[in-house]
């Protein structure tokens, strides 16, 4: 990684113009993975000074600035209060406190990293990404849609809804990337389910969600069917961390356990 210049932007407009001016200019998030990039950056654009490091928690939504660190995110009472604290459970198992004091929420989203635990947990919530110049996109559309926004991600808006969440991760230690991760959120009408580190990026299991929609109490057959649909409809592949077969086995077990947990069993 080589960086020629740094722009300490004073406004979003200034940052945006710099990014549009040259493809070799890059926006900086927390910068944790910056050194691993094998590329040359002409102007690195720093938006640290733009006040995007606050969380506004209201009744309807929790509005998270893109430059909020993962540590500030996990220690915020509104985040702890959402879905029984499953976002805290997810975030606290990402490497170290010292890393999470550097890594940002925006950087964790915009990278669309396949290994991401954070995106899997967020994927079971109703999340809207806000870009400058003004553009809004759901997290799912951002991860899997055709449109690739070129603006600056400024806010991650999470609907503050009632429900119970659960996050599962398969990794040996805090410092390992997951071989597979899975999140479930039980809300009023049913369940949202997402799987990540497939090794592709987090994806919702729509067929399993549709099957469980509106079911008041889950029987063993329901859970088995949801698990079967999960692995037949969400692509799970092989890489150096795990085989597709291994991932399929783990994903089904995790879904069954997570469904039990969000139902208080």
């Amino acid at each position: 990684m080589k960086i020629e210049r740094l722009l300490r932007a004073d406004t979003l407009e200034e940052a945006y113009e710099a990014l549009q001016a040259d493809k070799a200019n890059t926006l900086l998030g927390g910068g944790v993975w910056l050194k691993q990039l094998n590329r040359k950056i002409s102007t690195a654009v720093d938006i640290t000074r733009l006040g995007l490091d606050t969380i506004e928690a209201g009744e309807d939504v929790i509005d998270v600035g893109a430059m909020v660190t993962l540590r500030d995110f996990e220690t915020h009472p509104a985040i702890a209060g959402l879905g029984n604290g499953f976002l805290v459970d997810c975030t606290q198992r990402i490497m170290s406190v010292a890393l999470r004091n550097v890594a940002t929420v925006g950087g964790s989203v915009i990278g669309r990293f396949g290994f991401s635990d954070f995106l899997t947990a967020l994927s079971v919530l109703d999340v809207t990404l806000v870009f400058y110049p003004l553009k809004k996109l759901s997290l799912e559309a951002f991860l899997h849609g055709r449109e690739k926004p070129t603006g600056i991600l400024t806010n991650i808006v999470i609907r503050n809804e009632t429900g119970t969440g659960c996050f599962k991760k398969n990794a040996n230690t805090l410092l390992d990337f997951a071989r597979l991760n899975l999140a479930v959120f039980r809300h009023r009408g049913g369940y949202r389910i997402a799987v990540g580190a497939r090794p592709g990026v987090a994806k919702r299991a729509h067929e399993s969600m549709a099957y469980l929609q509106g079911r008041e109490s889950l029987e063993k057959e329901d859970v088995d069917e949801a698990a079967t649909r999960l692995v037949s409809h969400v692509k799970l592949g092989s890489n150096n961390r795990a085989s597709a077969d291994y991932r399929k086995t783990v994903a089904q077990s995790y879904l069954k356990r997570a469904l039990q947990e969000v139902n208080g069993r």
Binding site: I3, L6, R8, G30, V32, N101, V102
Partner: peptide, 11 residues
């Protein structure tokens, strides 16, 4: 606490 290996001094 932060990782000093992961922060650019100029920031």
């Amino acid at each position: 606490p932060v990782l000093s290996c992961s922060l650019l001094t100029v920031r």
